[in-house]
């Protein structure tokens, strides 16, 4: 798994590539935690080059969304979700909990 974090004025962009499983999910959670510990709660997660995400990854998403949405201070949005991962998010009932964008530009523009 490879994570790239870019801080913009109004939001943070996290791009994740490869495989999120129980071994790598803690790194993703740590990236999110660093951002929210910094008092920043508007995050876009770019997933176009993500091959695999287990429930450990879903856990990082739901925990971060809970922190971000508290006091209406922001939210985590998902960008360019691959088909198989979209099916997993759908089965877990996550689709109504996240705004989903096709590309980074519209995700960043949402904030």
């Amino acid at each position: 798994m490879e994570i790239t974090h870019t801080q913009y004025k109004h939001c943070d962009l996290v791009k994740v590539k490869g495989r999120i499983d129980s071994y790598t999910a803690p790194q993703l959670a740590e990236t999110f935690n660093k951002i929210t510990d910094d008092g920043r709660f508007k995050i876009a997660l770019e997933m176009s080059e993500l091959d695999f995400m287990s429930s450990a990854g879903l856990r990082a998403l739901i925990n971060t969304q809970k922190v971000c949405k508290r006091y209406n201070r922001g939210e985590l949005v998902l960008v360019a979700i691959p088909g198989n991962i979209h099916a997993a998010l759908d089965l877990a009932g996550f689709i109504p909990l996240f705004k989903i964008f096709d590309d980074v530009l519209s995700a960043v523009g949402n904030f």
Binding site: S55, R59, A92
Partner: peptide, 8 residues
């Protein structure tokens, strides 16, 4: 945040 693995 737990229990989704078995569900899948």
């Amino acid at each position: 945040s737990h229990g989704l693995g078995l569900f899948f």
